[in-house]
Design a protein around this nucleic acid. Structure first.
Length: 421
DNA sequence: TCTGGGGTCCTAGGACCC
DNA sequence: TCTGGGGTCCTAGGACCC
């Protein structure tokens, strides 16, 4: 059996954690640059605010309904997520962190004297008690079914946060009540096609022939088809090997024009990406830089270039040099740049790097320097120690007008509690 | 005027090998 | 008139996920 633990309205719940007056009122969290809605409280959902809806369309509604607005505070959300995930490790030796707010637990071999449902309830209670985040738990024989279970746990009050699809009968009812578009693995493209064929629910989908599903919807469709019938196709991910690519990109707060401004931005992105790279013990064999201009479709400048490294590297300094070369080739004078990004690719484990006879870089020295930088930043704070190219005008910085404090990661932002006498 | 950011996997087709 | 059979690797694009 698998359990899927899913945090309810996660970003909103993180904001509420340190501001209980937000309980019971509509709250939304906006994407970078305060562009669109990426998280909503139940009260905000009830107002008809859609996921991904642009904020400027909602300005009036926000005001009229007194919706509390937050800019994304990913440092806060990331820290709370780590707390939830480390707590889950108490309930299973196999925790697969699937996203910032979700994890699969393998329940095989776990002693559950009072049954899976009670075990699920213990998880809900313990996460609430220790971290203060509400979660829903779905339990079923496959991950796809566990997804359906957690969805029911969240949406249907009678489950009170825990739904266990243990018996074939329970599963059949759940499948009949699940619209096909809500099934994990059936997306925006395939769902309308299935509807035309008369497949309206997950149950209908399982009644199609295996051969037909395979032919029409390829291997992914067939796996979903099998998983819905209780056959495991997506097993527990035992050893996550780290990312195969690392992207850092941002839309700028305003359009920037000079090479120095754009380079300052991509230098920052490179440093962030390289730090993640070192964290997972890897080195990158390629760098890609992309830029997007402002303006409308035919005239908008969009450019991207990739550069292979002679030897895969995890040194911010070295990666930054290649990024600069690429940007020189990409940069066009007179353009207004609205977005840029860096993608590290061809990632390999650091101890499997193919060396070169003609290498001129002192890799051991770079490695020691990066260790020092990472250690200083861990202790003294994010980007306390930086490469010179990262510092400058900051004209590209995103606008985040509704940012909450970093309650858990910055001494400056620690909550002040006033006691009445 | 204004619409985020970060990933994975699969397939088809081209280029190449013997 | 007629032109084999079996493979690998790479890339772009599509579909999906949060």
């Amino acid at each position: 059996m698998y359990a899927l633990i899913d945090c309810n309205n996660f970003f909103v719940s993180c904001e509420r954690l340190f501001n209980p007056s937000l309980n019971g009122v509509p709250v939304v969290v906006l994407s970078g640059n305060d562009g669109c809605v990426i998280a909503r409280s139940n009260e905000a959902k009830a107002l008809g605010i859609a996921m991904g809806q642009p904020a400027f369309e909602l300005r009036e509604l926000f005001e009229r309904e007194r919706v509390t607005i937050f800019s994304s505070n990913h440092i806060l959300y990331g820290d709370i997520s780590r707390r939830v995930m480390s707590l889950l490790a108490r309930f299973s030796p196999e925790v697969e962190v699937y996203s910032i707010d979700e994890a699969f637990l393998s329940l095989d071999g776990i002693s559950m004297p009072y049954g899976a449902e009670v075990y699920g309830r213990m998880i809900v209670d313990e996460v609430m008690r220790c971290v203060g985040i509400p979660v829903s738990v779905g339990i079923a024989p496959t991950k796809t079914l566990a997804k359906i279970a957690s969805h029911r746990a969240k949406k249907m009050p009678r489950y009170q946060g825990v739904c266990c699809l243990a018996t074939p009968d329970q599963r059949a009812i759940a499948l009949m009540e699940t619209p096909i578009g809500d099934v994990w693995g059936i997306g925006r493209r395939i769902a309308p096609k299935l509807l035309v064929e008369g497949v309206a629910t997950a149950w209908d989908f399982t009644k199609l022939g295996c051969e037909y599903v395979r032919r029409t919807y390829t291997i992914g469709g067939e796996r979903t088809w099998r998983e819905l019938q209780g056959v495991v196709c997506y097993a527990a991910d035992e050893s996550p090997e780290g990312r195969q690519s690392i992207t850092v990109s941002r839309t700028f707060g305003r359009a920037v024009t000079t090479f120095d401004e754009v380079y300052e931005a991509v230098a920052n992105f490179t440093a962030t990406a390289a730090e993640r790279l070192r964290q997972q013990g890897s080195a990158a064999g390629s760098v890609m830089v992309f830029v997007k201009g402002s303006g409308c479709h035919p005239n908008r400048y969009v450019g991207a270039l990739q550069r292979m490294l002679p030897v895969a590297s995890d040194s911010t300094i070295e990666l930054m040099q290649y990024v600069r070369q690429v940007l020189v080739a990409l940069y066009r004078r007179g353009e207004n740049y609205k977005k840029a990004g860096v993608i590290l690719g061809h990632i390999v484990p650091r101890d499997h790097v193919q060396l070169s006879l003609f290498d001129t870089v002192d890799r051991e020295k770079h490695h020691r320097l990066m260790q020092v930088i990472d250690n200083v930043n861990r202790q003294a704070g994010y980007k306390a120690l930086r490469i010179g190219a990262e510092k400058g005008s900051q004209s590209w910085h995103a606008q985040s007008k509704h940012l909450s404090p970093c309650y858990t990661t910055s001494f400056r932002d620690i909550l002040v509690v006033k006691a009445d006498k």
